[in-house]
């Protein structure tokens, strides 16, 4: 009789603990899943800064162009672009290579501001304000244009690469 009561108590305790444990884990997982921290932009300051630096450098390189040294732009594109961004750049680059020497075209890009919109794992989107100036033979002054880009990036082998560029 005493053994039976003990067994019932023990069983109740075990069941209660299991229910509590499962409830705790379920709640924790759902909290983590819905957590705004799944977007690490600004939460992980180091990675956010690293991303902004990488994207700024890469964009400046691939959007600058000198008719005297087109290889520099192309090499940069090989290094920092991937996917659709790489394909688009190839099309643009071919166009430039045909026209640029005749016009003695020099393009230079400069980042005005950049901020991380989303950063989760190996994927990120960055908002970039960029100025691009173009100087042609016979121009007294460069033509300057202002751009606003939504940049998609992926981390490949530890380095951020640009996979998409969308003008806003």
């Amino acid at each position: 009789m005493r053994g039976r009561i003990l067994r019932v108590i023990a069983a109740t305790v075990v069941v209660t603990l299991v229910v509590l444990g499962v409830a705790g884990w379920t709640r924790a997982i759902s909290l983590r899943h819905d957590s705004p921290a799944s977007n690490a932009a600004l939460v992980d300051a180091g990675r956010t800064e690293e991303l902004v630096t990488a994207i700024s450098q890469s964009l400046t390189q691939v959007l600058s162009y000198d008719y005297q040294d087109p290889g520099l732009t192309n090499a940069a594109a090989d290094r920092v672009l991937t996917g659709p961004a790489r394909d688009e750049h190839t099309t643009l680059f071919e166009e430039l290579r045909k026209k640029a020497p005749g016009q003695k075209l020099v393009l230079s890009a400069e980042i005005q501001a950049a901020g991380v919109v989303t950063l989760s794992g190996d994927r990120a989107t960055v908002l970039v304000f960029l100025d691009q100036s173009s100087l042609r033979a016979g121009d007294k002054e460069a033509t300057v244009s202002a751009a606003q880009l939504s940049v998609s990036a992926v981390r490949v082998d530890g380095a951020w690469k640009i996979s998409g560029l969308r003008p806003l």
Partner: peptide, 21 residues
Amino acid sequence: LAGSGGVAWWRAAHDERAETA
């Protein structure tokens, strides 16, 4: 199980990263 569940819950609810985010 109950102990780890409780700790996991508490940590998820008091996450500094979640506060910043």
